[in-house]
Amino acid sequence: MAARVFFLFALGYFLSYFYRSANAVLAKDLSQELGLGPAELGFMTSLFYLAFAAAQLPLGGLLDRVGPRAVTPALLLVAALGSVVFGLAQSFAVLALGRALIGVGMAAALMGSMRAFSLWFPRNYATVSTLLVGLGATGGLMAATPLALLKEALGWRGVFLLGAFVVALVALALYLGVRNTPPGVAWPGGQRGDGLGEVFRNGRLLRVAFLAFAFAGSFLALQTLWAGDYAYHLGLTALEVGNLLFLYSGGAVLGFLVSGYLADRLGTARVLLASALLFALGLLLLLLKALVPAYALLGFFGAFNILTLTQARELVPSHLVGRGTTLVNLFGIGGTFLLQWGVGVAVEALGYALAFGGLLALLLLALGLYLPLLHKSSG
């Protein structure tokens, strides 16, 4: 039963990662067919994250009280509807609506899994959670070269219509195939009261949240749109772009898989700091157009941003795990929305060099604010 719970939640997160990443490969088709400029493309793609982020705080309370067995499949059906809307869209407004619905629908894929795993796998929570993220991140691999090939066979609209059917099947399988808790374990529910107030007053948690804003936001904004569009801008073919994104996403899968292991042995704060600095090096190499090492560093070390969620769980009491982790996830996904849109505006007005330079400066600022937490953790 535990293996089935893990597998079905991993399928849900796989789909979430696929959908968030798909527009990087489809950017050229969407721009040409619907006449989207960089700012419109960035805004439309980032709506996934705006909708995803807006759902996080109410989602945390729902997961603590109702449980992921009902919440996650219900939202996945919203994502399936969004996929249909996106695939049939003939205008920017309808395309944007579809993207936003997908974002709402995928909001519980990771957080629902983590809430369930806190009871199904309490003794090896960190290991199982990072394994889930690593396996789910293969959705980013599917949204690279395989998606480029599938798009050639079905067209981008066909990809989204087929995807809607797959998402609905996974939603049904989750509802029928999992339980909130292992047999014999009662669902604890969630305390009402001032839970959100407690997490917002936690200064250490807010430092982690701002690091998630800059680190996770930059990682996902690049992976799910601008790393692909930048490669197209440099004159690469669709297959060459797909291969670079495959390198980025493949590195991310490896990074997710080893991040928890390293954090358990070296300390979460130390590993977060080191990985964010190496991600910053990747941004610098991207500016220098050293694409292969840049995409490899950005993918592998960018994946370590997931440790902000692990650290969030360490900084809140057990009855606030859902709300504490969704707060940090709100900052990370909200950062993706703002940075993905902001890069589009900056590229249109100033060019890629200043846009990516802005991401680098923001990450260094976040690391500066995070350093006191590193010293406390070391002590």
Rank of each mutant, 00 (worst) to 15 (best):
Y352V: 10
F7R: 03
Y248F: 15
G332Y: 11
R157N: 14
A80G: 15
L132S: 11
A290F: 09
R115W: 00
M106W: 00
T325A: 10
L354T: 05
A137V: 01
L30T: 04
L97V: 12
P183T: 08
Q311I: 05
M106G: 09
V94D: 01
F331T: 12
L364E: 09
G61I: 04
S218C: 11
A53R: 01
S129M: 15
P317N: 09
L176A: 11
G155F: 06
V241S: 04
R201L: 12
L257A: 12
L291Y: 02
G322L: 00
N202G: 07
F117S: 09
E33D: 13
A53L: 02
V241N: 07
G60F: 01
L161H: 03
V347Y: 03
K376C: 00
L110Q: 03
L161T: 03
R313N: 13
L119E: 12
Y248C: 00
G87D: 06
A280I: 07
V328P: 09
F160V: 03
G368W: 11
G302T: 04
A280P: 10
V104I: 15
A269C: 05
T268A: 03
W226P: 14
M1R: 14
A148L: 01
V178G: 01
L365V: 15
V271P: 07
G155R: 01
V78R: 03
L364D: 11
A168Y: 00
T237L: 01
H233W: 07
R123F: 09
E198C: 01
G193E: 15
K151Q: 15
G299C: 10
L285W: 05
L362P: 06
S259M: 09
V84Y: 02
G193K: 08
M44F: 02
I306F: 13
T130K: 10
V185G: 10
Q340G: 14
R65K: 14
G37E: 11
L307M: 06
V241M: 03
A173K: 00
T45D: 03
Q191Y: 02
E198Y: 09
R157H: 14
E314S: 14
Y13H: 14
R65V: 11
R323M: 05
A353P: 02
E33V: 04
A231D: 01
L365I: 11
Y230L: 15
G140E: 08
L288S: 13
R204E: 14
N180H: 10
F165W: 09
G335L: 07
A366F: 03
Y295S: 12
A126M: 12
G155Y: 10
L284N: 12
L131F: 02
G358E: 05
L297M: 07
G112I: 08
A74P: 05
F215Y: 15
D264L: 06
D64H: 04
R207Q: 15
T181S: 11
A24W: 04
T326E: 01
I102K: 02
L36K: 06
V167L: 05
T308G: 09
G82I: 09
L97G: 05
T325N: 04
E314K: 12
L81N: 10
T308N: 14
L369A: 13
P293S: 05
A290R: 10
A349F: 02
T224N: 15
V133N: 13
A153M: 12
R115G: 02
T138Y: 02
